[in-house]
Design a protein around this nucleic acid. Structure first.
Length: 425
RNA sequence: GGGCAAGUAGCCAAGUGGCCAACGGCAACAGACUGUAAAUCUGUCCUCUUCGGAGUUCGGUGGUUCGAAUCCAUCCUUGCCCA
């Protein structure tokens, strides 16, 4: 099975330029994907492009990860309904460094490999380019008509928000990246999300016109959720790849909580499991959906890929402590259990305040779990708060010293899945 | 520079002098049911609250009025048309 066949089966190909498959079969090909430094960590949305590069490398081709030091200064209008805010140079550089460090984890850069991965930053070739150079050497080759025909541009032209010249130019800047990589790194392939198709074709067009060369591309579909919601969001916001921003436990939980429909699609995209193993899992899932074989494998594979064995182990350990026996009394958790539950928020609370007894509402607000008493009260009234695994049914409920686990902990739950550990001392 | 239109809560969007913290929808959070799914139903959803209320909102600023998201002036932003 060749790369394209493999990716097609996994549901990772949306558009593909004719001849791409033949090119990949013909010779070792360098292919690139651009990553925008919009934040100081990549999130799981970027996982798909990363995986594309990994698949590319596994198939013997050379992956190039491009970070957008220059394009990040412009702002990609694709998929955006409004003009983006520009990032300051300082943030940009910080983000750039972080993103680069993350990318390095997932690809093999060993110089001994014939298809060693490479990192590039388009600021390197834009830094010294003047505006006049750009409009003469790049702008001259592409008509405004061509650029305006792109979906991402047209949608914005039709909308009432309009679009700045800066963002309009974006596709040329990205297009030039491809041209530069084509001429300097013999890079003949660009990949990306399907929203990038317009930008990508500008690149191949530029290569065709400027050096009558031939370049190829394919895109993968944007990841969606069955219910139409945004992929990669939880209550706490984005799911990041950086373990300091999203702990391995939370990361694992994100995948574990996938709906059945999503898990079926995602397991093919986000894991390297073979077709046979996935089909076996699908059969299992249908036979006993409650066991969630799909979600478990999905969560395991992705967590291991991103956070390694150790990260997965700690995620599992926490999951078991929290969910293995929901009805088990909180008292059955040992000090070690409580202390080592990774990924749950920890708070401190002065012991003397509890000595005399304190009502739940004040407690929740004062220790910082909830922002205000009003909010705490509402949640309690809704039945959304449990303490030491027992549901609190009244805002008047009073916390006293004998509730402390091991004389110093209180375990708070908001809803079923959000745990907070309060250290009293 | 001239003409026209628009700017309301995270988003979409109603409201066009008092009954407006502002209809409705989406998103989000919680509850019931489940499988830590989905669907459905229910509650919450500007901030604070001793749950009685209190405070701050409808692009900004000033004004008219007993009273303004709503009227007037001015400024800002955006779009369309003309120059």
């Amino acid at each position: 099975m060749d790369l394209i066949e493999e990716l097609t089966w996994r549901g990772m190909i949306q558009d593909i330029m004719p001849g791409t498959r033949e090119q990949l079969a013909k010779e070792r090909t360098a292919g690139y994907i651009g990553f925008d430094p919009t934040a100081d960590s990549l999130h799981i949305g970027s996982l798909v492009p990363i995986l594309l590069l990994v698949h590319l490398q596994k198939a013997g081709h050379k992956p190039i990860a491009l970070v957008g030091g220059a394009t990040g200064m412009v702002g990609d209008p694709s998929g955006k309904s409004e003009e983006r805010n520009l990032l300051s140079e300082e943030t940009l550089n910080h983000n750039l460094a972080c993103v680069q460090r993350q990318l390095e984890k997932y690809l093999d850069f060993s110089p001994s490999l014939p298809n060693a991965a490479e990192m590039a930053n388009n600021y390197d070739w834009f830094r010294n380019m003047t505006f006049l150079q750009f409009i003469r050497d790049v702008g001259k080759h592409i008509t405004v008509n061509y650029m305006s025909a792109k979906d991402s541009v047209r949608r914005r032209l039709d909308s009432e928000n309009g679009m700045s010249f800066t963002e309009f130019t974006y596709q040329l800047v990205q297009g030039y990246d491809f041209y530069w990589l084509y001429t300097h790194k013999q890079c003949k392939l660009q990949m990306g999300g399907s929203d990038q198709w317009g930008n990508i074709t500008t690149g191949t067009e530029l290569i065709r016109r400027k050096s009558s060369g031939e370049a190829f591309a394919f895109t993968c579909p944007l990841i969606t959720k069955a219910d139409g919601g945004k992929f990669g969001k939880t209550e706490k916001g984005n799911v990041w790849l950086d373990p300091d921003k999203t702990s391995p436990y939370q990361f694992y939980q994100f995948w574990l909580n996938a709906t059945d429909a999503d898990a079926e699609k995602w397991i093919r995209i986000f894991t390297f499991l073979s077709r046979d193993s996935i089909e076996a899992l699908l059969v299992q899932q249908r036979a006993d959906p409650g066991a969630r074989a799909l979600q478990k494998s999905l969560a395991r594979e992705v967590t291991e890929f991103v956070h390694g064995q150790a990260g997965y182990q700690s995620a599992i350990a926490t999951t078991e402590k929290i969910f293995a026996d929901q009805s088990a009394p909180a008292e059955s958790l040992s000090v070690e259990d409580l202390e080592s539950i990774e990924g749950i928020a920890k708070f401190d609370f002065p012991a003397d305040k509890i000595g005399a007894g304190i009502d739940v509402v004040s407690f929740l607000a004062e220790c910082g779990i909830l922002p205000s008493k009003g909010e705490a009260r509402k949640l309690v009234q809704n039945g959304g708060i449990s303490i030491n695994r027992r549901k609190i049914d009244s805002p008047q409920f009073s916390l006293t010293g004998d509730l402390l686990l091991h004389q110093k902990y209180i375990l708070v739950q908001k809803g079923k899945k959000n745990y907070y550990l309060v250290r009293v001392g």
